[in-house]
Design a protein around this nucleic acid. Structure first.
Length: 295
DNA sequence: GAAGGCCTGGAA
DNA sequence: TTCCAGGCCTTC
């Protein structure tokens, strides 16, 4: 459920709360939540955050070795040399929140919480950054700054929907045989859209979720492009949507769920035409739509 | 293109 | 007790 607007909200709040902070301690409480070697997180201890990134639904904290430890490492200690080399190019700590992942700040953490997987402590800061995930669909991992080192999911991700031009958007969906909603959810085509914002965007664009993309004419794809951008921008302005699990860095709920027109509203009247909102299952997920307004 | 599996808590 | 939520990957 944390989709692009929720990730963007968290990134903005992280930027406000942790800019320039030095990571003093990493506690990995559940190693299998970290892909590609949990001990790589340990390399980040002593490093300073230099940038806050978002790509699709992924949240990235970019680190750089602090000035003191930037001195070249002499001697035969391989681990230290590797650490120094890695640090020189810059490392990124990535989070994907899956469905129930949470990233938030707290002074204290509960050692008996089985869902608290990673704790990050900061120099001169009492608050810790906690990564919690009940259903464990989320992931944490470290890469270098070089996109070639990114895992497939990040490397092959499609363009950002808030940046993609209309021409490119047309190209992405034109002549495709797949169902439009499946394609919207496909991160390799366009990044960051999940079930909620796919349904809301399709409603706004007046497009039925089971419409084959290739059957949409240019003006309808154009309308969908605009709808996606509007829905995502408005959701960001509202701090995302909280259906059940999502909370912001400060533990607040999002506000955009109040503006949902179809998601989760099966049986309720459509705000535009009054017909009952319907639900169908597509690619294993619920799809909510208005059969009158969406064709 | 569909379906199953991962995973858990809460609803039916 | 069973079912359902769904991001993402694998398998058919």
């Amino acid at each position: 459920m944390p989709e692009l607007p929720e990730a963007e909200t968290l990134v903005r709040q992280l930027r406000g709360a942790l800019s320039g902070s030095v990571l003093s301690k990493v506690v990995v409480r559940r190693k299998d939540m970290v892909t590609g070697g949990w001990n790589k997180l340990k390399l980040l201890e002593g490093q300073k955050i230099t940038a806050f990134l978002r790509r699709g639904k992924f949240i990235g904290l970019e680190f750089k070795e602090t000035e003191f430890s930037e001195f070249p490492v002499h001697g035969e200690n391989q681990a230290l040399r590797l650490k120094a080399n890695a640090a020189r190019s810059g490392l990124i700590l990535w989070f994907h929140l899956g469905m129930t992942g949470r990233l938030y700040l707290r002074d204290l953490w509960n050692d008996s919480d089985p869902h608290l997987h990673v704790v990050l402590e900061w120099e001169n800061k009492s608050r810790k950054l906690l990564f919690q995930d009940v259903r464990r669909f989320g992931r944490v991992f470290v890469t270098s700054k070089d996109p070639e080192s990114f895992p497939e999911g990040l490397k092959k991700m499609g363009p950002e929907p808030l940046e993609v031009s209309e021409e490119e958007f047309q190209r992405l969906f034109r002549k495709r045989s797949g169902l439009i909603k499946s394609l919207l959810l496909n991160q390799r085509i366009v990044a960051g859209i999940g079930n909620i914002y796919a349904d809301e965007s399709l409603f706004r664009a007046g497009v039925h979720p089971k419409k084959k993309a290739g059957r949409l004419n240019a003006s309808r794809i154009s309308r969908l492009h605009a709808a996606v951008r509007e829905v995502l921008s408005e959701a960001i302005a509202q701090g995302g949507s909280t259906i059940r699990d999502y909370i912001s860095l400060e533990g607040q709920s999002g506000g955009f769920q109040r503006f949902h027109k179809v998601y989760g509203k099966q049986g309720q009247p459509c705000g535009t035409c009054g017909r009952k909102i319907q639900r169908l299952v597509l690619a294993g997920r619920s799809s909510f739509f208005c059969s009158q307004c969406q064709t």
